[in-house]
Amino acid sequence: MSAEQLAELSDFFVVAAVLLYVFAMVGFAIELAFGRSRPNKAEAAVETPVEVKLPVAVGAAGGASDVPAAAASEQVPVKASPGAARAGTVALALAWLGWAANFGAIVTRGLSADRWPWGNMYEFVVAICFAAVTAFLGTQLRHNVRFMGAFVMLTTALGLGLAVKFFYTVAGPVMPALNSYWIAIHVTAAIISSGLLTIAGVSGVLYLVRGDGMSRLPSRADLERVAHRAIVFAFPLWTFAVIAGALWADRAWGRYWGWDPKEVWSFITWVAYAAYLHARATAGWRGRAATIVQLMAFGCLMFNLVGVNIFIEGLHSYADVD
């Protein structure tokens, strides 16, 4: 196939990925809306349960007996739609198909341009969406995190849609500064860590919106655990990306650090996530306070990945947005 045909195929794969992610989002949303409700175990563990006996409860033989109120409430079944689980299974299959289309878009884009396929903002966003879905599906292989599916699919579908609408760039060569093997090292680490941190950000938002008591979302403890594990995996990768960027800057521009906006905000993002991990490890921060800190760090990440490239002029302004 010619370079033009490969570029057109890449564009087709992106559109297919958006549609598949949207359909998967609908399926996950159906499962979440009509699935089984769960108590907030995080708050239940904090409070000491008080056993209150009901005055009269009907036993198995029809007689009266004293039954703890908590036990009586546990006997009330929480109804779930029979089709909710099936909708979630179909959604998971669609998510895998969208992941494959997303991967195909990246590969064909690289083949059409004959280079690493993340040399501009459009390609970078497509790659980050792929990394986020990969992190979600990879986690799903070991733990049931389908409750995040609707929100991850929404985020990635919006990301790809915005990339096509506002960031699209015709496949072609890149500026000399990007024509280096360092793009495969520095940018790849940034993409993978950004995908993991996106999963943490989604978990943090769900933590804040989850109500008390019964909910179709997992407990706040489970949501916080997902976010923390994603950040623990991503933080060393982001650290490596910052260091690799400094080494690349020395090779390209003759200095390791030049206070370029991208360099500054990458470091600010690193400090924000370091503060989150430090607060958890030393001060024992948990719950809402720790979640707010990690969401502030996620905001720094998003501004670094998108805002700096669009709104601030610098050596890293590769968005190619008019």
Rank of each mutant, 00 (worst) to 15 (best):
S2G: 14
N40V: 01
A17N: 05
V242T: 10
V264N: 12
K165H: 09
D212M: 07
S215R: 10
H278Y: 13
N304Q: 06
A70P: 06
I128M: 04
S180T: 15
N144L: 06
G149I: 08
G195S: 05
R286M: 02
W257E: 00
P39D: 08
H143C: 03
A105K: 12
P173D: 04
P261K: 04
A150W: 11
G83Q: 11
M121L: 13
I310H: 06
L315M: 11
V226Y: 14
L247P: 02
A80L: 13
A234G: 11
G254L: 02
L9W: 13
G314D: 11
G159C: 04
I231E: 04
C129E: 14
P261M: 05
M121Y: 11
A171G: 14
R280S: 08
F34H: 10
V174G: 02
L178A: 01
P218Y: 07
G159V: 06
W253K: 07
L97M: 13
L208D: 00
A131M: 13
A244P: 00
V152G: 01
A177G: 04
V50F: 08
A100L: 12
L6I: 08
V50Y: 09
F124I: 11
I191K: 11
M148R: 04
G88E: 00
T108L: 11
L20H: 07
